[in-house]
Design a binder for these strands. Sequence first.
RNA 1: CCGGGGGUCGCAUAGCGGCAAUUGCAAGAGGCUGUAAACCUCUCGGGCCUCGCCCUCCGUAGGUUCGAGUCCUACCCCCCGGACCA
Length: 375
Amino acid sequence: MDKLTQATQHAEEVITKEDLQALLEKNSTLNHYIGFEISGKIHLGTGLMCMKVIKDLNAVGVKTHILLADWHTWINDKLGGDREMIKKVAGGYFKEGMIACYKAIGGDPSELHFVLGSELYESMSNDYWATVIEISKNTSLARMQRSISILGRSEQDSVDFAKLIYPAMQAADIFIQNIHIAHAGTDQRKAHVVARDVAHHLTIHPLKNDIGEIIKPVAIHHHLLLGLAKPSKSPQNVEDKRELWTELKMSKSKPNSAVFITDSADVIKEKIQKAYCPPQDVEFNPIIDWVKHLVLDTDNKQFTIIRDEKYGGTISYSSIEDLNRDYMSGALYPTDLKNALADELIEILRPVREHFADTDRHQLLSEMDQLTVTR
RNA sequence: CCGGGGGUCGCAUAGCGGCAAUUGCAAGAGGCUGUAAACCUCUCGGGCCUCGCCCUCCGUAGGUUCGAGUCCUACCCCCCGGACCA
């Protein structure tokens, strides 16, 4: 497998592959970053989907910086907008969660370099905010409005002005850290495209390659897992499929539609069992989606489904295509698939639960649970 | 600062002197399905020696009333618009 393929095998999109190819060939060192808001508990999207991309990049020699975005968290009113609490959770539960997840997918946590946003900005003195302004001067208001990622809530809701600064900060984060490869979920692509569009207009902290040319940062995005909850519109009479996709993905922020990295075996089973899973539909189906991206996402994987003899007996799949075919024909029944997925997830997340079994870390988790409930 | 609109059970909505308070969504319990969804029933402020009674409620604080989300007064907060172009 060549470097480019290896580096992007778990990515949903790369902007652009050509740019990345050039960097992989020509640059001696490459910096990757992903920023996280310190919101509630970590779910599989960030914990697994995202970490897989990081692991691939590290395997080809890219250095990872994880930005614990406390300022962004404050802007988006997470954790009650309590700045001290945000910092505390960032360096505590959140960091430990990331480390645990990286271990769970077979990565070496020492490859992850954590940076607290506020500390980064302070260390850059005026340059950070100057870069935010410079990016803003090269972007329009309309562009920023479109670039705000509305997380879960209705779009017309009046937003406070701070939220309009957010995308410029995301872009500034890239340049200020000298990031060649900016990474996020596909929902963040607009901010990344802003960064690429302004890249050649920056004077304070432009991004340069080894031979001193100003370059655009590559953007790499991981897939957003579908939420387990039923969509509010029924797939049969939706004219705009894109609309439904958005709807489904957003539902992850709703309670009970996401699996968290520290969920117990029983909770995982229960959530999967309650998940929306229409028979003979592999398109708008979270269970199929999860199997595809969390289980059958590598070439040599075998996904074994244990089922009663009367339903056909145990069967094993090594590709999502085979599984989809059986599912579409009805040969593979939802319940059997669900049971197998739940078992698989419980196993995948075992290292995370073990990581948090440690007394101190368990304390962090309990505090997080408290916060989530209180909030 | 001025003008207008508004703050009701998680969200969204009724209500305009008799209300524990309408409706939708969400949530929860159950029924039907070899899953979920859809569909149907019930619950959804709290408490109880249980279906009737008690407590607490409609931004906050007072007031008028036999009785107030509902009227009056003051205050707080949110939204929309205006403000300057001498």
